[in-house]
Design a binder for these strands. Structure first.
Lengths: 253, 253
DNA sequence: TAGTGGTCTAGACCACTTA
DNA sequence: AAGTGGTCTAGACCACTAG
């Protein structure tokens, strides 16, 4: 039935990845189709000449990628591509902020009394003060995102100037180390530009736009930062794939 | 320094999950903070009294959840919550379709010559025909999503009636078995309702809306189904979390 | 009862980082 | 050289599914 498919021990690609790639290819080829049972782990061990843990690691990879699923006592099966299983990430926003050609202009950065909405979001009373920061992100000189952020103002721990700038924004998106936040809640929304937002972005009011709302908490579970990114709908690419496309096997560890 | 934290061998919760939960708790407590180095795998083995593979499995879990990251030769570190690392899923759309109170009404289902756009998307010429299906999904009697779909029409393999109905739609979102698709590409977009769309959804034109565009391919990599879900922006909840919130440890296998 | 996936172990060798 | 994570092995026991 199935030919022996020994792996290359001298390859830079570890055995578990080779096994995963091999199985993936047989699914892409249509050799195994949605609902089909794959060879059992014992059979895969013999087929590829590796130990069971190595086979299991390969199967786990494919499971995490949503390519196959396992049923205890029954076997491993090929999963059908499902629209509902799709996930979307903010890679295009990261690319924008990481891009050296992207500039961040601080429109406003000052200590203000909070609006009722900010009071609610940051769980502060209207006697306290918050730091309001408004930025415009531009790519190649063209404004693409407007960002407004409110931080709880703690007089004992004054904000350093760096926290207003580009660094703080980069840290918010991709923080390779320390940060005062324990966790954050995000919400993606479809909206239209208000007049104010449109003016910052050199757009017409009413144009379709993304809103990325974020609320970060400190280690006492108190909200400390609430804000929103707003940009025209075509400024953010939220594309993804379900199932196993031909290009890009994604079998990397 | 660190107390011994033996695991419960008789618990229904497997050791690797107990170790992962333990580490998670110490991160939630703030005992380990963003950027901190966790105990080495050897130390964790001694701390919890389990083998290295078990510790590694726990660490892998936390890595996949974006809670920690590893650096070869250096150690395992707590990851700071990053806005840019967030992912969003279509759970709320799945819930809607899976809900027994949701009904699907077929507005239209017929064989038509394709529009230029459909020709392009499905890679067919304007001499051929496509199957146009338009549906309205209602929840509690209220229309919430409009779905329009175009399938390449193959006279040799006529569509059965079931493919127009609710079943086909459920299969598209959560297909627990066979399906003619090899993979699909999806795109999420922020838009506003056209007059036609608004009329089906009993809304005003120009209202903010989600568009979920999908394009599915067969095993010969030919597009076979192109369609769009359209619904008011508050009909879909795209929320997510980064970092480790207090509630819901998510340590399940 | 036989086959399946799920878990765990003890030990080994490796590449990498740091001192 | 010592410590770290990355990988692999051979074998074991378990819970579950099916005939």
């Amino acid at each position: 039935m199935s030919k022996l498919r020994p792996i290359d021990r001298s390859s830079f690609e570890p055995p578990y990845a080779q096994v995963a790639r091999g199985m993936r290819e047989r699914i892409v080829n249509g050799e195994y189709r949605a609902g089909d049972r794959l060879p059992s782990e014992a059979e895969l061990c013999a087929l590829y000449g590796v130990s069971r843990m190595t086979v299991r690691r390969a199967v786990t990879l494919l499971t995490q990628d949503g390519v196959v699923y396992t049923e205890n006592g029954r076997g491993t099966f090929v999963r059908a591509p499902e629209l509902g299983a799709a996930t979307f990430d903010l890679a295009s926003l990261r690319r924008l902020v990481d891009d050296a050609a992207t500039t961040v202009k601080i429109i406003e950065a000052r200590i203000v009394p909070p609006s009722p909405r900010v009071c609610r979001k940051l769980a502060v009373d209207d006697e306290s003060y918050v730091v309001a920061i408004k930025r415009v992100l531009s790519s190649a000189g063209e404004p693409v995102f407007y960002h407004s952020e409110y931080l709880v103002f703690d007089p004992r721990r004054p904000l350093v100037e760096a926290e207003y700038g580009v660094t703080a924004l980069r840290d918010l998106l991709a923080n390779a180390g320390k940060s005062g936040f324990k966790y954050g809640r995000l919400r993606l929304d479809a909206s239209t530009l208000t007049e104010t937002e449109a003016s910052y972005l050199a757009e017409e009011p009413g144009v379709s736009a993304w809103v990325i709302e974020h609320l970060f908490y400190d280690f006492e579970n108190r909200p400390v930062s609430w804000g929103r990114f707003i940009g025209r709908s075509d400024r953010l690419d939220l594309s993804t794939t379900v199932g196993v496309p031909d290009v890009g096997n994604g079998a990397g560890g």
